[in-house]
């Protein structure tokens, strides 16, 4: 079966669930995706009336992680007066994971959130397609079978879907949200742990320190420090990010290479055991920087060191909120 049929089916059942939740007053609002204004785009949308559910859509361009809109500072948007609103969130696997992890970190109350689960088959890497097309304008994109067809004024190109989804999606093991504390309706799964082989990292990890540095600096050098990656990330919810701190100023705010590197370095450290590998950061970067390498490493550190995958359970403490006498300490300096 082709992609469109799959998506249409998902879309229909998702609308049904949303309609039911709204009609039964189980939720006050549903956050979902709606049609974007440009090819390969989509937009987040909050609906509060059951009539509006048909505005919700699902396709492979729904790249924003909707959990971003739930974090305290943004939740006020929905209704500043009423406070504790009940919200349903259209959730692909990583959105569900983000919500669960936010609950674990005490950022939201799962009683107020309904995870409307949908199975995701991967988000199309629009930045990569744009790069391949180059300096021509994309006017229309459609999918047929397993192909993405991109059309412009005087060209038409085809891309294999499996190849042109986000790199994180290729590695994704949690396509639909885990069912935690019965917060999930729709398509959900019971999942305790995932195994991952990180073979995609092997090549990079085998490089020498010098080569790694060169690779990373080359990857990040165009960063404009706009912080779109941070804003779109559901896990970057701090009210005062280290970037904005000025008492003391830990590193420069400029676009000097060292400042760029430190930003991404510290951000990576902060995301260990938290990143849910949604790829939103990569999808939104205006400069088309692919942060996949960092995402995967951050995941790997949490898995290797603490056997932890974020957003799968509401009971397991995330590694950075926990400690144990028996943690590994192979890196400590010891007498010979």
């Amino acid at each position: 079966m082709g992609l469109e049929e799959d998506n249409k089916k998902i879309e229909e059942s998702m609308r049904e669930t949303a309609r039911k939740l709204l009609e039964d007053k189980e939720v006050d609002a549903v956050i979902g995706y709606t049609e974007g204004t440009l090819p390969m785009s989509s937009m987040a949308m909050v609906i509060t009336r059951a009539e509006d559910v048909d505005k919700l859509i699902w396709n492979n361009y729904c790249y924003i992680n909707l959990a971003t809109y739930l974090v305290p500072r943004i939740a006020q948007l929905v209704d500043p007066e009423k406070g504790d609103l009940k919200v349903g969130v259209i959730s692909k696997g990583c959105v569900g994971r983000a919500i669960i992890h936010l609950k674990v970190e005490g950022q939201l109350n799962l009683d107020n959130v309904k995870i409307i689960g949908i199975p995701c088959n991967g988000i199309i890497d629009r930045k990569r397609i744009e790069k391949e097309i180059g300096q021509k304008e994309i006017l229309e994109v459609s999918t047929s079978g397993n192909e993405i067809i991109v059309k412009g004024r005087d060209f038409e190109e085809k891309f294999a879907f499996d190849e042109y989804i986000l790199n994180v999606c290729k590695q994704c093991k949690v396509k639909s949200p885990p069912n935690v504390d019965d917060a999930c309706v729709g398509e959900c799964q019971e999942i305790e742990s995932v195994s991952d082989d990180y073979s995609d990292l092997a090549e990079f990890e085998a490089l020498s320190a010098e080569e790694k540095w060169n690779h990373i600096t080359e990857l990040l050098e165009q960063c404009t420090k706009c912080h779109a990656c941070r804003e779109a990330c559901p896990m970057c919810y701090c009210n005062l990010c280290f970037v904005d701190q000025n008492k003391p100023i830990w590193f420069g705010k400029t676009t000097d290479l060292s400042d760029i590197i430190v930003f991404h370095l510290i951000r990576s450290i902060h995301l260990v055991g938290r990143c849910v590998a949604c790829g939103a950061c990569t999808s939104v970067c205006p400069m088309g920087i692919d942060l996949n390498l960092l995402i995967r490493k951050v995941e790997r550190i949490a898995k290797d060191r603490f056997d932890f995958t974020s957003g799968l359970s509401s009971k397991v403490m995330p590694p950075m909120m926990d400690f144990s006498m028996n943690d590994s300490q192979e890196f400590m300096l010891e007498e010979d």
Binding site: A44, T68, T224, H227, A228, A232, P286
Partner: peptide, 17 residues
Amino acid sequence: WKEVAESCVGCGTCAFL
């Protein structure tokens, strides 16, 4: 304005570009 802000992620890419 509330509607406009609803889907905004607040990144400021618009201003930088």
